[in-house]
Design a binder for these strands. Structure first.
Length: 492
DNA sequence: ATCGGCTCGCGCAA
DNA sequence: TGCGCGAAGCCGAT
């Protein structure tokens, strides 16, 4: 199909998180799954299998779900638990020990990783540049007596391969077009567990007694947990089976029309894959490979010249080109941003100079409407299309991709200041969106405030030269009647 | 409803 | 130094 699997995990995806040694006399290799929650096409899992094989030790997969993280809710827990249920089924009776752990009360899970690491040869985990993951991984590595290696399984381009943050999608796309041909020859193995060591798992009964593994993730009693029950489970099921079903359905029925349909809220032409990509139930490599395979793609179809243009580089159908620009360019641009802004990815002060200047100059402009967080959350603005988008977010945990931009632009317009707008966007996105708390949350919300964009004349109140969007123009340009009906005020 | 052109600074390709 | 480019903007022609 024109892409090939790496014979071993590419070194550029490996990052040791401590100086501790690998212990040859450890009992097992531990994969601590925190972001790439899947058993296929997963570089971290692949690396853990390689290390276990080399050490002649069994592999243990720890998939944990903490309780005390910001925005923990029935919605996010349910989605992750769906994935854990699928993993329990897939690994039952196999050679790899699966250790699913649901933290029952805040802090109850403390010590579990250390207890396992104390008996391990080494620990492998996911390198994920957003939310609490970098801090958690670093802290755990500091307490581990054996080496902890973070593995980057996020995207087609290893995120640390680009040494700087890119200021525009165009320039990042051009860099990708230069680099991707080599990356396409180093895909993760589709089934890394195929040759996991078949060795008797160690006796973990002491650890199991203290930190009882989840017995049945389907039955997890969310009501008993101290998480936000006001954010209900989304109608979308999480996990591997749902992710694959959604991907196949998208490729079979909507990819061809993706370029035309994706922007029309009524057409439901979006892929709907971002929640699965966010939680790692699906890998970007898998989606890309499925598309390339469907179109019998070979590398000789690549354009001979690199221009950075949005379409035409792959030599695929228009729908595939358009979707791959989302999946690869825009998605990985977010990782590029976060990996180079480990502490301030969402800070207002990281906006481009021109955007900050123009927004600051207009901060005191009179606003026609001003709402606070509660009013936005309750979809209580004067604008029916905006309210519909907010209702979709609350009910479904997603917003149509075009309307999501409009949603943000109006929060900018109707907040007391751009900084308030930034805080409101982050809070609502991270509280309700299944795909929130992601590098793409930072880049998407930053885009609303001018990141990756250019000044656009004419200058307006509040926005200054930051690109403007309006519900009126959106309704004129796109089909939204059905969407307004679906997410109207009386359609709970 | 849909399309193309607008505009110009940027950073790399040459 | 010239060229090709642009997240979702606008407007006007069809």
């Amino acid at each position: 199909m024109g892409i090939s699997e790496a014979t071993s995990t590419p070194a550029g995806r490996l990052r040791p998180l401590n100086d501790a040694p690998v212990r040859a006399d450890g009992e097992f290799v531990l994969y601590w799954m925190v972001a790439q929650r899947r058993l296929h096409a997963n570089f971290a899992l692949q690396y853990a299998v390689e290390q276990a094989t080399a050490a002649g030790r069994p592999l243990i997969i720890l998939e944990a779900l903490r309780i005390g993280y910001p925005w923990a809710s029935d919605r996010l827990h349910r989605f992750v638990l769906d994935g854990m249920a699928d993993h329990a089924t897939a690994l039952r009776g196999g050679p790899v020990r699966y250790y699913p752990y649901l933290e029952p009360t805040e802090g109850a899970g403390a010590g579990l990783l250390e207890a396992l690491a104390a008996r391990a040869c080494e620990v492998v985990t996911d390198d994920y540049p957003a939310f609490f993951v970098p801090r958690m991984s670093a802290a755990a590595a500091g307490r581990s007596p054996v080496r902890v290696t973070a593995v980057d399984g996020n995207g087609l381009r290893p995120m640390r391969a680009e040494p700087k943050p890119y200021p525009t999608a165009y320039l990042f796309r051009r860099a990708l077009q230069h680099a991707l041909p080599a990356d396409l020859e180093a895909f993760p193995r589709a089934d890394p567990l195929a040759d996991a060591p078949r060795l008797a798992p160690p006796d973990l009964s002491e650890i199991v007694r203290r930190w009882p593994p989840l017995r049945d993730a389907d039955a997890g009693d969310l009501g008993a947990l101290a998480i936000n029950h006001a954010v209900a489970p989304a109608p979308l099921r999480g996990g591997r089976a749902a992710a694959i079903a959604r991907m196949c359905e998208f490729l079979d029925t909507r990819l061809d029309e993706y370029g035309q349909a994706r922007n029309h809220p009524d057409d439901d032409g979006a892929s709907g894959l971002s929640p699965y990509l966010h939680f790692g139930h699906l890998g970007a490599h898998e989606v890309a490979a499925a598309i390339l395979q469907r179109e019998d793609w070979t590398p000789d179809r690549l354009a001979t010249r690199v221009t950075g243009a949005k379409a035409g580089w792959w030599g695929l159908s228009a729908g595939a080109e358009s979707f791959l620009d989302e999946l690869v360019t825009w998605r990985e641009l977010g990782f590029n941003w976060c990996v180079h802004h480990p502490d301030d990815a969402d800070a207002y002060d990281t906006l481009p100079e021109w955007a900050r200047r123009t927004l600051d100059r207009h901060t005191a402009d009179p606003r026609e409407y001003v709402y606070d967080l509660d009013e936005f959350e309750a979809a209580a603005t004067h604008d029916p299309l905006w309210n519909a988008a907010q209702r979709q977010l609350v009910r479904e945990g997603r917003i149509h991709n075009y309307l999501r931009m409009l949603w943000g632009k109006k929060i900018l317009e109707w907040s007391p200041s751009p900084r308030d707008a930034l805080a409101t966007m982050l809070e609502l996105n991270n509280r309700y969106a299944l795909d929130g708390r992601d590098p793409n949350s930072s880049s998407g919300i930053g885009w609303v405030l001018g990141r990756y964009d250019r000044p656009w004349a004419p200058e307006r109140p509040v926005y200054g030269a930051v690109r403007y969007m309006s519900s009126e123009n959106t309704a004129r340009k796109l089909r939204v009647r059905g969407y307004l009906d679906r997410f109207g005020p009386d359609t709970a």
